[in-house]
Each structure stands twice: as structure tokens, then as C-alpha cells.
């Protein structure tokens, strides 16, 4: 079920989500809401369940129990294909190691996301080019991933994530593999995106990133929400 959501409604709603991997419990009864336009950072030590939370929201994995509703879609009711279509329409993801296809040019990497929805190659490339210009990497469109700097690769990954105008942008340690300068550029980019209304969910170890980009920080320990705080952005 999909519904049009205003800014006051929850884009993401987790209810008593539990995820077990064999004997170990990655998420233990997590409930939370993220509203449209929010920028939420999830922080915590390694193994605390941050990335598992992100996988649940992205529909990359299924909870052992509990419910995950994103933009009105109850992910528990979707089959594999339904989850793929959900990710296509609702989710944009960026990763610590960018995950670009080495054999495709930067432009084709970004256009790919739209082409999967059936958009023609010409239209997809046109839209990708617009994003390249907006993100300041227009001159790098025909370059291949191996020839890009880390910061440029992450910008290409952000462009790909935005290609289908997602309801929420999920970022998993987006500055973790970048040097300080490139990391700051990516932080600025995410902040800009949030300021124009893009909902953000960040998973990070980086206190500076959280402080700078997020309006709310959720602390995870041992698969549970240990605390939650609202922040005044520093920028």
C-alpha cells in the first residue's frame, strides 16, 4: 500500500523490529519513526546493529519479527520482486565504498538506476546529466570509476541514489572511505540535499558528520536504541 505523505507524517516507521542471525541478535525490539524532511543519524559501536537497521529500512533484509513501513509500504507484505520495485521507487542508497560498476562510465552508472525502471537510455542520460551538473561533477561524466577521486566517486554514488527521486536517502558511512576534504564536500552535499527537503537516514561513526548533517541522532548499543537526541546543526 502506498500513500502520499505530507511533511508531518512518518516516512519510516519501525515497530518492535527484531532481527536474529542464528544465535546472535542484531536488532532487539527497535521502534522508531522518521518524518519527511528529517535528517537522522544512527550512531553506535561496531556490531551495535546500525547497518542492520539500514538494511531493514532499505528492504535488503527482512526482520525476524516486527514491522517495517516505509512511505506507506509494509515491507513485510512484499515479495522479493516487490522489495526490488520498492527500492527502485522509494529508496536511494549510498555506501562507504561507493559500489560503482567499474565497467560503466560515471554517467552510465547513474543512468542505470533510471534505466532499470524502463526509462529510455536517452532520457536516463539526460536526467543523469542534470544531476551531474547540480552536484558539480559535470565534467567527469564520461570518466570511469577507477579514474575518479574518492570524493568524486561518492558524488557519482549520490547522483545515482537521487536518480529516481527517492522518498528517503540512506547513507552507510558515506564519508568513511574519504579523506577529510572529500568527506567535508560530501557532508555539504548531504546537508544541501536535506535543506531542499530530502529525507536522510545516516549510519555513521563520524560524530562530525552527524553533528553537521543530522537534526536527530539515535544511539544504538547491542541492537537496541540506547538514546536519542536532537541537534542544532553546526553549519
Amino acid at each position: 500500500m502506498t500513500e502520499d505523505l505530507g511533511n508531518e507524517q512518518a516516512v519510516v516507521r519501525l515497530t518492535a523490529v527484531r532481527k536474529e542471525y542464528g544465535e546472535s541478535v542484531a536488532l532487539d525490539g527497535v521502534s522508531l519513526e522518521i518524518h519527511a524532511g528529517e535528517a537522522v543519524a544512527v550512531m553506535g559501536p561496531s556490531g551495535s546493529g546500525k547497518s542492520t537497521l539500514l538494511s531493514m529500512v532499505a528492504g535488503l533484509d527482512r526482520p525476524t519479527s516486527g514491522a517495517v513501513v516505509v512511505h506507506g509500504d509494509d515491507l513485510g507484505s512484499l515479495n522479493e520482486k516487490g522489495l526490488a520495485l520498492f527500492r527502485r521507487r522509494r529508496i536511494g542508497m549510498i555506501f562507504q565504498f561507493f559500489n560503482l560498476l567499474d565497467d560503466l562510465s560515471a554517467l552510465d552508472n547513474v543512468a542505470l538506476a533510471a534505466q532499470l525502471t524502463g526509462t529510455s537510455a536517452a532520457h536516463a542520460r539526460k536526467r543523469a546529466l542534470e544531476l551531474f551538473e547540480e552536484l558539480g561533477i559535470g565534467d567527469r561524466r564520461n570518466t570511469y570509476p577507477a579514474q575518479l577521486s574518492g570524493g568524486e566517486r561518492q558524488r557519482v554514488a549520490v547522483a545515482r541514489a537521487l536518480m529516481n527521486r527517492p522518498a528517503i536517502l540512506l547513507a552507510d558511512e558515506p564519508t568513511g572511505a574519504l579523506d577529510t576534504r572529500a568527506g567535508e564536500q560530501v557532508m555539504d552535499l548531504l546537508l544541501d540535499l536535506n535543506q531542499i527537503g530530502q529525507t536522510l537516514l545516516l549510519v555513521t561513526h563520524d560524530q562530525q558528520l552527524a553533528t553537521r548533517c543530522a537534526s536527530r541522532v539515535i544511539d544504538f548499543v547491542d541492537g537496541q536504541i540506547a538514546g536519542e537526541r536532537s541537534l542544532e546543526r553546526t553549519s
Binding site: D102, D103, L104, S105, D108, A111, L116, A121, A146, R153
Partner: peptide, 21 residues
């Protein structure tokens, strides 16, 4: 990341009308 291979072919295939998969 490694240098891509068959780049011209990949680029040409990206622009075709074939389903992307």
C-alpha cells in the same frame, strides 16, 4: 576499483533500447 574492460562495448550497450538487464 579496477580499470574497466570492454568500455566502448559497455557504453554502446548502455545506449541501446535493450532492457538494461
Amino acid at each position: 576499483p579496477r580499470a574497466g574492460r570492454g568500455l566502448r562495448v559497455q557504453r554502446w550497450l548502455s545506449g541501446t533500447r535493450l532492457p538494461r538487464s
